[in-house]
């Protein structure tokens, strides 16, 4: 046994000729929340599925909770909760029936009391006989989280759990996530939201199947060597395309009324903003946001060169 809940290396998954996950290594210490980021199609879901035994890696090896992901997938499933990207509970079963089913599958003791308890905690006692399919997106997500944690898993894999969920429900969801980690559960959660990434102990960023960077938010920002300037002058947006045309500026992005420009070359970016016409604006150096870093990472990784067949 080691102190990592997830410890995998050189994970590769190919579908036909397409290398969806390419040489991914992850070491997630127990009790932490890790954010899994990266553009759509970068291999996040595939990696998560390999961790919980839903897909067999083409190459690579590793352990989840000290169990081999290839030979001991069945045992991993007993101690892992996996929340799928798309709601995968039974829409034609009621809330209670879904929870009953899950607790029977894991052969949980005191099933009735357990289900009662979960329903009460979800505050769904009044609606327990409603079909799961009739629930709104936010409620479905809460139900799913409750269902995948019923068997007290030690590892939770959440695949974009908050996609399409309103801000209040998202906040409550994250409160629950932190509560779970306080109980010692390790969580890997994939997301597209930067504010969620910032709530994680560490993040891992995947692009085109490759792990590009990982670490705490601060580490990732520092490691990017990015210099970012912001301007909030009125009419700053008119300069955007001219700034984009500058070779020395790696990315230009709108943040509300403000414009962020970033580059890994500090001298070059400072030369640009001292030049006309950009010198007419007021520029302020800031610590790059996670979003700046990711956009810069995506730009530097370039286009997807994988073979799709």
């Amino acid at each position: 046994m080691n102190d990592f809940a997830v410890d995998v290396k050189s994970l590769v998954k190919e579908f036909g000729k397409t290398r969806v996950v390419d040489d991914v290594a992850l070491q997630i210490p127990k009790g932490q929340v890790w954010g899994f980021l990266g553009p759509n199609g970068s291999g996040k879901t595939t990696t998560i599925r390999m961790l919980c035994g839903l897909l067999t890696p083409t190459q690579g090896s590793g352990t989840c909770l000290g169990l081999d992901i290839i030979t001991e997938a069945e045992k991993i499933k007993l101690q892992t909760g996996y929340m799928t990207q798309k709601f995968s509970f039974w829409e034609d079963l009621s809330i209670r029936e879904n929870l009953d089913f899950v607790s029977r599958m894991y052969n949980l003791p005191n099933r009735k009391a357990k289900v009662d308890d979960v329903i009460a905690r979800l505050d769904l006692t009044q609606r327990q006989h409603q079909l799961a399919g009739d629930l709104s997106g936010g409620w479905k997500q809460r139900l799913a989280l409750a269902a995948v944690t019923m068997h007290n898993p030690k590892l939770l894999l959440l695949d974009e759990p908050t996609a399409g969920v309103d801000p209040k429900a998202r906040r409550e969801f994250w409160d629950q996530i932190h509560e779970l980690t306080n109980q010692g559960i390790t969580i890997l959660v994939s997301t597209h939201y930067m504010d969620e990434a910032e709530r994680c102990d560490q993040i891992a960023y995947l692009a085109h199947g490759k792990l590009i960077t990982q670490g705490t938010v601060r580490d990732v920002i520092a490691a990017s060597n990015l210099t970012t300037y912001v301007s909030i002058n009125k009419g700053v947006r008119q300069f955007a395309s001219a700034l984009k045309a500058e070779d020395d500026i790696e990315n230009v992005s709108y943040f509300g009324a403000a414009l962020h420009i970033s580059s890994t070359n500090t001298v070059a970016i400072e030369n640009v903003i001292k030049r006309a016409p950009f010198d007419s604006l007021d520029w302020q150096k800031i610590t790059p946001s996670l979003e700046d870093v990711f956009i810069s990472l995506m730009t530097s990784v370039g286009n997807d060169k994988r073979d799709y067949q």
Partner: peptide
């Protein structure tokens, strides 16, 4: 078709 298969497979059932 309804997307429940992934859920069943993630559970420890033979």
């Amino acid at each position: 078709e309804k997307g429940n298969l992934e859920n069943i497979l993630a559970m420890p059932v033979k």
